[in-house]
Design a protein around this nucleic acid. Structure first.
Lengths: 321, 321
DNA sequence: CGCCTTATACGAAACGTTACATATTGCATG
DNA sequence: CATGCAATATGTAACGTTTCGTATAAGGCG
């Protein structure tokens, strides 16, 4: 910058103004721009960040990125940020609370302007001076949380299964014991079943103790005992739904003729528009963009604490319709 | 840091040393560490970066992240970087040369310590002072390129198809006209066919002009004319392979009984270990880690210009075995 | 006990910006 | 033509680190 100033015969302050688009005398601006191009000058964001405490960077914290749901979130968050001239730091935690905490730590050091996080650590210490938007997890304090309508999705799943003729339905759930918005899927499902006086059961395996494979044993066990009397299953994720479908098929139980299955997420087949199973579709793109919007809303404290985006049902072959 | 120094009754230099793990008198170290914890001191990476020109950040440039191949790359690169105490900036280009160039630009401003890029822009201007490792694209200058053994993969595909009994095989390719390492898939395929005196044909659609859907028209057209005489197809990507399989199935052509198909990448079904099609598997994890290794190798100029990682064939239902 | 050597903490300068107070310019007015 | 005022460029002091030359303390030896 010093070189540019010298080459253009102006002061540093003037160069600074030009680089920031602050109005400056026409002839000066031209000279500075010429000199900058000539010298291939690149502004040093680290010096700027040091001075302004603005870094034009946002951190995205995710458990991983190998799941379509996560990678879609990342994709849309990244695009939304780029559109606003921001860049994205990606942190992958593997769902480990410790790693999650250390991310927040790192993120503070790196002085990003904000964080968007899909975390599981219930005691995550976030500094109140750091804009934070959470996905699928409602923190106590004034951190906004965006999620899809998990409760409504649960109800919708029950409604669909029952309207498609199921007599006894089940909710299969795996995942962490850490409380999150996703819990409401089960709540909605139960309530809808109750209000319809329908027979239902909940089978919940937390994956701290059991791998998803454990569902296989449970199913086989109940089949053997003759207590596998469901004709409709709502699974907490598409991943689980696909797995359950496979197990049932292996056992000679037909899907969807004998048992109908609905998943949650809206995961599509690779290279196709079709869904991997009948499912409750989360509006991932909208969720991601809402996160970014929220992060940039001027007054974070006066912002809605919980943004709940609408879900919809989609047919994917594991239900009759 | 000033506060910490004051609280500990030492100078800034001493605090700096403690924070960087440089040996310092025991009693000083203890006092400084206590004060730092007390004041919840966080080092300011921007100030440090300004001074040292080391940012402990690496940029990963990808076309997008919605494709399993890309997201796996991102996942492993991120993990490898984290393991080394680095963080990752993610840039998504959508395969646009302009965006790719502007990424390099941004990346220079942000003063990352290096770039790993999967780019298509053949005239990408990279500064020679910036460590750059390329995936699947061999630049002229001293930028190392890591890719899987595309040539060998092409030969392997031909070998497999022919050994599984195919009499006339084809290479279906879509993608950019921009030259890249992936071109060698076709070269290897052709050579293996020639050396076996086998009948083969190449159908290449660049997606600047045609969407992948165009393959449907070509296939239908040839079926109608009676010139669809292949019994083995090697597709440049799994994506294309899956598509072609679907088209053939729609036309009543059985896969793999009538036509066997091999793809490229090693994409797995969602939630299963199985591959989406019979395929040549790229060692994505190794590729990603090699990129990071290369980026950190002391003397980038004396580093191999092209690292070629072994591929392997995997059965995925679209071949007889 | 004093001097010299070695080790180690100190202090100031610098990294590349921005922002504010000050100086300069240009222009209109009396 | 001098004066005053507005507009605009200049110069300088930070921002929070690291680094390096200098000063100080500690320890060993004569």
């Amino acid at each position: 910058m010093k070189d540019v100033a010298q080459a253009a015969g102006v002061s540093l302050g003037t160069v600074s103004k030009v680089m920031n688009g602050i109005p400056v005398g026409e002839k000066y601006r031209v000279k500075v721009e010429a000199a900058a191009k000539e010298l291939n000058y690149q502004i040093n964001q680290y010096a700027r960040g040091l001075k302004t405490n603005q870094t034009f960077a946002v951190a995205l914290i995710l458990p991983g990125i190998n799941h379509p749901f996560f990678s879609e979130i990342a994709q849309h968050v990244c695009q939304a940020l780029t559109r606003r001239g921001y860049r994205m730091l990606l942190y992958l935690t593997g769902s480990s609370p410790e790693v999650e905490q250390s991310c927040v730590q790192m993120v503070r050091q790196n002085m990003v302007d904000g964080i968007i996080g899909l975390t599981y650590n219930r005691d995550l210490q976030l500094t109140d001076d750091m804009p934070f938007v959470s996905i699928d997890r409602h923190f106590s304090s004034g951190v906004p949380c965006v999620s899809s309508d998990n409760y409504g999705g649960g109800r919708l799943a029950a409604e669909k299964l029952l309207e498609l003729g199921c007599r006894k339905v089940a909710y299969f759930r795996n995942g962490t014991t850490q409380p999150g918005e996703a819990d409401k899927r089960g709540v909605g499902f139960e309530q809808e079943c109750r209000s319809r006086d329908a027979d239902f059961e909940v089978i919940w395996l937390n994956d701290e103790e059991y791998p998803m494979e454990e569902f296989r044993n449970i199913i086989i066990d109940r089949v053997n005992r003759g207590t596998f009397d469901f004709d409709g299953i709502f699974c907490s994720t598409d991943r689980l739904a696909v797995f359950v479908k496979r197990v049932l098929t292996e056992l000679g139980i037909r899907v969807p003729e004998d048992v109908q299955i609905i998943g949650f997420d809206g995961t599509r087949r690779f290279g196709e528009d079709a869904y991997v199973c009948s499912t409750i579709v989360q509006p991932v793109a909208t969720m991601a963009e809402t996160c970014v919007d929220l992060l940039f809303s001027k007054d974070l404290s006066r912002t809605p604490a919980l943004v709940c985006l609408p879900v919809e049902y989609a047919y994917g072959g594991t239900t009759k319709e």
